[in-house]
Amino acid sequence: MRKRGREEERERSEAKTGHQLVRARSGSEMKVMVAVKRVVDYAVKIRVKPDKSGVETSNVKMSMNPFCEIALEEALRIREAGAAAEVVAVSVGPAQCVDTLRTALAMGADRAVHVDAGAAPVLPLSVAKILKALVQVEQPGLLILGKQAIDDDCNQTGQMIAGLLRWPQGTFASKVVLDKEKQVATVEREVDGGIETLSLDLPAVITTDLRLNQPRYATLPNIMKAKSKVIKKVTPAELNVELKPDLEVVQVTEPPKRKAGVIVSSVDELIHKLKNEARIL
């Protein structure tokens, strides 16, 4: 999915729909939409369900996906730099996603939208379709997502939504600079050989890598302000999106357990073990 240079981007962006509409807005009125996912907390030790159908999520600490936190932080910085007027956080999933959205509001997002998709996991293509529908409602100039969620590690949603919207995309961003006048986002990506720089015409999709920024904490004054902010609730049906399980999880298993080490009492014993048990001598 790598695109090189501005030419390609321009070709693609000229073909897209709705482009002129957003472009007509001035930068200070631009909206940034951020997708945030509720996942098992990064620091929790994952346990696989006994029936191997997935990982245990009941009675487990859930938090905002770390890459989504970075995405939100970037959006807030763009707004604070005056390049955008509003940050809208969006989450797709069960009712408890409201907690994740509260966190987003406490970090500084202006509004939130919760797409209540019920308890069943929503797969990347469905999320992308839902986000596309929301983009058409909200008309943001920029959509920022985490490059992947740490639960399923799919790393697909950002690319899919860019494809569905026919918007240019800058994935795995490690630096984002927005030019308000030219309506262009410059995105740096860490690739094998060094840093790749992309220039994207807005509106565009950006997915964030770990080193893009360090997310802020939710301060008490912001938590207080968040109390009066609105979380709008919609259903996939209202967005005319049908949730189809297009992938089936066959089995989830734990990695093989590492065997405990032994302490040998002498060099001879070590050599013996290396020769006869490890068979590497």
Partner: peptide
């Protein structure tokens, strides 16, 4: 949060942050 916000209004707390995940 209710306790913290009330204490902040009363001036017992000047500023504060609430951890949003285990990492924080």
């Amino acid at each position: 949060e209710a306790f913290l916000l009330r204490s902040m209004e009363e001036g017992l707390i000047l500023d504060g942050v609430v951890a949003q995940d285990i990492n924080q």
